[in-house]
Nucleic acid binder design. Structure first.
Length: 828
DNA sequence: GGGGGAAGGACCA
DNA sequence: TTCCTGGTCCTTCCCCC
C-alpha cells in the first residue's frame, strides 16, 4: 500500500526473474511468455512462497548493487593488472587444452513423462505431467507448449493448461527402465558416469578405437518387434517407423532416418562417433520404446550443452577443433551452461554479459568482482573448456531425507517426525554401509524460510538412535528459540555427511561395556554403543537439551576410556567400583556387573544390572533431594528389587543428577552434576594440595563444604552449583548425627569432626587438574560475567544456545576427559 | 593466518 | 488450497590453534 506505481512495477519485474517461466528447456521455444507469466504471477501472488521469493530476489538485488559499487571503484590500473593475469592464465589453459577424448552426454527425453506415455498410450496426445498438485517432476512436449514444465507446482500448471493430466510418480518403474538403459551405456563405456535416472556421461574414446576394426556385422542391429521384444525374428511390416519411434514427438527426427522402405529390417551403423552414438540411441529406443538425445564433444561441459541442442531424439557433435569450439561458444547464452543458474545469470546480465563471447571479454573485470573459483570457472566456460576425465566411481558425500507436510506446530509431533526421518535415513545409510560424522537438521518454516543446523560428532554414526540423539538436540534448540511461540514447520529433513573412509570404518573405539568388562573383548565400535548404551543427559521435561559439547564429551570420554584401557593395559574392572564419579551424565546399560557401590547411599550391590544401578542412584538422589535425608534401603532387598526393575525409559533417566528443591529456583537452570570436584586453592589460585601446583586463572576463591544447607539452584559468584551439589551429596551421605560422612569419591566413611579435613580428603581423592580447567573455561551458571555464547553466523539469524543450557555437562566433558588423560592406567 | 565447522545459498536433475 | 526431493559445491563467518 505504500509503494508507488513505479516501485510496484519494479517489484514485479524483480519477481518475474525468479518465479516467471523459465523457458530454458527443450520444447519451450516461442511461447507467449507474457501471457504465461501473467497467469503464474496471478496464481502465486500473496502466497507465503511468493513473499519469500520476493525477499530472496531483493537479496540478489542487493548483491548486485554491492557488486556495481565495487565495480565503480575499480581503477584502470587494477583492470590492466587483472587483464595481464587473465592473459597469462589463458595461455596456460590453451596450452593444456585437450581435444583427444570423445565425451558423450546422453539424456532421455522427458523421461518420466515418456515412461508413463509408453505405458498408457491414451496419454500420448494429451498434455500431461508427472508429479502432483504441489510439484511436477516433468511434463511432455504437449504440456510444454502451455508453459508447463518440471519444477512447477501442479496447481499453477493447471491454470496454464486446464486439460493437463497429472500422473503420480512411479520411481520403481523409472528405475527399472533406467537399468535397461544403463546396460546399453556400459557396452560403450563400462565406467560411464550416471548423473540421475535419465542421464549419463560416457567416454567412448576407447570404444571408437576398437570400433574402427569391427566388421559390419558387429555394427548391425535389427529392428525390434515392439510386441514380442524379439529382435531376431521380425517382419518388415513390424518395422514401420511408428514402431521405431512409438511414443513421442511426431516432429522429431528418427534415430534411423535411413530406414524408409517396406523392406527395412536391419540398420548398419558406421564407425564414427556420431554413428556410434546414433547406434546407442537406436538400441535404447528398441529396448525401451523411449528416445534419448545426446551431445558429443571433447569435454563434459560442451557435451552437456550439445545434448540439449537437438532435443528431443537428436544428437549434436562438436568436432575436436579449437576453432569450431570457439565458434560454438560465441553465441551461446551463459544460462545454457550447466552451473549457471538464475542468480549467476542475473548478476552477469547486470554487467552486460549474456553470451559466452561477452563473458570471455570481461574476464578481467570478473576476476576483480567474483571469487577465484567463480572467475576461473567463467574463464573455462568462455574458452569452451571442461573436464575431459569422467570421474569414475566418485564417492557419495552425504545422504539425507526430508519431508514436506502441512503446517506442524506441535513439538511432540515434530520430535516424532524427526525420529521417523532418522529411522528412514539410518536404513538408507545401513543399506549402503555408510557412517558419517555430521548430522544436519533442515527446517523450513511456514514462511518458506529454510534453516539448517549441523553438528559434527567425533565419530561416525549410522543408527537411528545415534542420528536422532543429535538431531533432536538440534531441533530442541530451534523449538526453544521461538518459545513460548510454537515452531511452525512445513518441512523437516535430516542429513548425514562426512562419511568415513573404508579404513576408518574399523572400530577404533571400544564400547563402554567393552571398557567396563574385565579384560573385556571389545563388543563393537563406539558407534554401536553410542545409541544403545549412552543417552545424552536429559532435561527435566524429558527432552535432552542441546549440547554439541555434550556429544563431544561423550566421545572424549570414550576416547579416553579406550586410550587408558588399551594403552596401559589397565584392569578395566578397577573402574567399575566408581562408575558414578566417572560418568555421572550417562545412562548405563543393562549389562550386569559383578560389583558396584552406590556413591550416594554407599550400598554395595553384587551382580547388578547397570540400568537398575542407574535407577537406584536416581532414586537415591531424588529421595535425598526431596527429603534431605539419605536413602538407606536394605541392600539385599533393594538389589532384588533393582534386578526385577525394567530399564528406565530415556525420559526418566537422569543419572546422578541432583534435583532442586528450592521453590525459587528458575526452572531454566539446569540441575547439576556431581562430577566436578571441589578444589581448594590459596589466594593466588594455586592448589593447596601438594601434588597439584598449577596456577589457576580463577579468582582463587576457596570452595568449602559447609554444614549449612544451600539451595542447589542458587548460583552466584560466591558459590558455584558444583559446590552446592557436592554439598548436597555430602549431606546425603552423612549419617543422622553428622559424626561421619561418606566421601563421594572413594566411598569411604570419613570423620566429620573437622569439615576442612573432610574437604581436603575429597580434594585429594579428585584429580583437581580437572576442575582447574573446568573453572577456566566454564564459569558457573548465572555468574554475572558469564560470556554469552555467540551465534556462529553472527548476523545471519542463527540461534545461540540458550545460556541456561550451556554449562550443564561441559563440566563432565572436562572432568572425564581430563580424568582419563591424567589417570591413564591408574586405578581410580 | 590457516584449518575446519556451521550455516546459508546456488545449482542441478 | 496447493511451490519437492536429494544431492553437490561454494562462500562467508567464526573459532581455535
Amino acid at each position: 500500500s505504500v509503494l508507488n506505481h513505479k516501485q510496484c512495477e519494479s517489484y514485479c519485474s524483480d519477481l518475474l526473474s525468479r518465479i516467471a517461466l523459465n523457458d530454458n528447456k527443450a520444447g519451450m521455444e516461442g511461447l507467449d511468455r507474457d501471457k504465461i507469466n501473467k497467469i503464474i504471477l496471478e496464481t502465486s501472488k500473496g502466497s507465503k512462497f511468493y513473499e519469500n521469493e520476493l525477499k530472496k530476489e531483493q537479496q540478489v538485488n542487493q548483491r548486485i548493487e554491492k557488486m556495481m559499487e565495487q565495480k565503480a571503484r575499480i581503477t584502470k590500473e587494477q583492470l590492466k593488472q587483472a587483464q595481464a593475469e587473465v592473459d597469462k592464465l589463458t595461455c596456460e589453459l590453451e596450452r593444456s587444452r585437450e581435444l583427444g577424448r570423445v565425451i558423450v552426454h546422453v539424456d532421455m527425453d522427458a523421461f518420466y513423462a515418456a515412461v508413463e506415455m509408453r505405458d498408457c498410450p491414451e496419454l500420448k496426445d494429451k498434455p500431461m505431467a508427472v508429479g502432483s498438485m504441489s510439484m511436477l517432476s516433468t511434463s511432455n512436449y504437449h504440456a510444454r507448449r502451455f508453459g508447463v514444465r518440471a519444477a512447477m507446482p501442479g496447481f499453477i500448471a493447471k491454470k496454464l493448461c486446464p486439460n493437463l493430466v497429472i500422473v503420480p510418480t512411479n520411481f520403481d518403474k523409472y528405475r527399472a527402465v533406467s537399468a535397461q538403459v544403463r546396460e546399453i551405456f556400459s557396452e560403450y563405456d563400462p565406467h560411464f558416469m550416471p548423473m540421475s535416472l535419465d542421464e549419463a556421461y560416457l567416454d567412448i574414446t576407447e570404444h571408437l578405437e576398437e570400433r574402427k576394426h569391427w566388421p559390419e556385422t558387429m555394427r548391425t542391429y535389427y529392428i525390434c518387434d515392439a510386441k514380442t521384444g524379439n529382435d531376431a525374428d521380425r517382419s518388415a511390416a513390424e518395422s514401420e517407423r511408428d514402431e521405431l519411434s512409438p511414443v513421442l514427438f511426431e516432429d522429431s527426427p528418427s534415430s534411423s532416418p535411413s530406414l524408409s522402405g517396406a523392406d527395412r529390417k536391419a540398420e548398419v551403423f558406421g564407425t564414427s562417433a556420431e554413428e556410434a552414438v546414433r547406434e546407442m540411441r537406436f538400441r535404447i529406443e528398441q529396448k525401451t520404446s523411449l528416445t534419448a538425445s545426446a551431445g558429443i564433444a571433447p569435454n563434459m561441459m560442451l557435451a552437456k550443452v550439445c545434448s540439449d541442442k537437438n532435443k528431443p531424439n537428436g544428437e549434436y557433435r562438436i568436432p575436436p577443433e579449437r576453432q569450431v569450439v570457439m565458434e560454438f561458444m560465441k553465441d551461446l547464452p551463459v544460462r545454457k551452461v550447466s552451473g549457471v543458474g538464475k542468480v549467476t545469470e542475473k548478476m552477469l546480465a547486470a554487467l552486460g554479459i549474456v553470451n559466452c563471447d561477452q563473458l570471455g571479454q570481461q574476464i578481467a573485470l570478473l576476476s576483480l568482482l567474483f571469487s577465484g573459483t567463480s572467475w576461473h570457472n567463467f574463464l573455462h566456460i568462455s574458452l569452451g573448456l571442461g573436464s575431459t576425465c569422467i570421474e569414475r566411481d566418485s564417492e557419495r558425500k552425504s545422504m539425507s531425507t526430508e519431508r514436506t507436510f502441512v503446517e506442524m506446530s506441535d513439538a511432540e509431533e515434530q520430535y516424532s517426525l524427526c525420529r521417523d526421518l532418522c529411522q528412514d535415513l539410518a536404513q538408507d545409510l545401513q543399506r549402503e554401509g555408510l557412517k558419517g560424522k555430521t548430522v544436519t537438521l533442515k527446517l523450513k518454516n511456514v514462511k518458506f524460510e529454510v534453516k539448517t543446523r549441523a553438528f559434527t560428532l567425533q565419530y561416525a554414526v549410522c543408527t537411528e538412535e545415534e542420528i536422532f540423539a543429535a538431531a533432536k538436540d538440534l531441533l530442541k534448540v530451534e523449538i526453544d528459540s521461538v518459545s513460548p511461540q510454537p515452531l511452525k514447520l512445513r518441512l523437516m529433513g535430516v542429513r548425514v555427511s562426512g562419511f568415513i573412509s573404508a579404513e576408518d570404518k574399523k572400530p577404533l573405539q571400544r564400547s563402554i561395556m567393552g571398557f567396563l568388562q574385565k579384560g573385556g573383548s571389545d563388543s563393537g565400535s563406539f558407534t554401536q554403543c553410542a545409541g544403545s548404551v549412552l543417552k545424552a543427559e536429559e532435561d527435566s521435561d524429558g527432552a535432552s537439551f542441546l549440547k554439541p559439547q555434550a556429544t563431544e564429551m561423550k566421545q572424549s570420554f570414550f576416547q579416553r576410556a579406550h586410550l587408558s584401557n588399551t594403552n596401559s593395559g589397565t584392569d578395566t574392572t578397577s573402574y567399575v567400583n566408581k562408575p558414578a564419579v566417572l560418568k555421572p551424565s550417562f545412562k548405563i546399560s543393562t549389562q550386569v556387573l559383578p560389583f558396584l557401590t552406590c556413591p550416594v547411599c554407599n550400598t554395595e550391590m553384587k551382580d547388578v544390572n547397570l540400568t537398575a544401578f542407574n535407577n537406584h542412584i536416581d532414586e537415591c538422589l531424588k529421595g535425598s533431594a526431596v527429603d534431605n535425608e539419605p536413602t538407606h534401603l536394605d541392600a539385599p532387598k533393594e538389589q532384588e528389587e533393582l534386578n526385577r526393575k525394567p530399564p528406565a525409559s530415556s525420559s526418566e533417566s537422569r543419572t546422578l543428577k541432583s534435583s532442586s528443591h528450592d521453590p525459587s529456583c528458575n526452572e531454566e537452570k539446569p540441575s547439576t552434576s556431581i562430577s566436578v570436584p571441589l578444589v581448594e586453592t590459596d589466594e593466588d589460585g594455586d592448589f593447596k594440595t601438594p601434588f597439584f601446583s598449577h596456577r589457576t586463572k580463577t579468582n582463587g576463591k576457596r570452595s568449602v563444604l559447609s554444614k549449612k544447607k544451600m539451595p542447589v539452584c542458587e548460583s552466584s559468584s560466591k558459590a558455584s552449583p558444583t559446590t552446592h551439589n557436592l554439598e548436597a551429596i555430602t549431606e546425603m551421605s552423612s549419617d543422622s548425627n553428622g559424626s561421619s560422612l561418606t566421601c563421594p569419591v572413594c566411598s569411604q566413611p570419613q570423620s566429620t569432626d573437622d569439615l576442612a579435613l573432610f574437604n581436603r580428603h575429597v580434594d585429594m581423592c579428585l584429580n583437581q587438574d580437572v576442575l582447574l580447567e573446568f573453572r577456566e573455561s566454564h564459569p558457573p551458571v548465572g555468574h554475572s560475567d558469564e560470556p554469552a555464547l555467540k551465534s556462529v553466523r553472527g548476523q545471519q539469524g542463527s540461534s545461540p544456545l540458550p545460556p541456561s543450557k550451556k554449562p550443564k555437562v561441559l563440566s563432565t566433558k572436562h572432568t572425564i576427559d581430563k580424568f582419563f588423560k591424567g589417570n591413564a592406567g591408574q586405578k581410580v
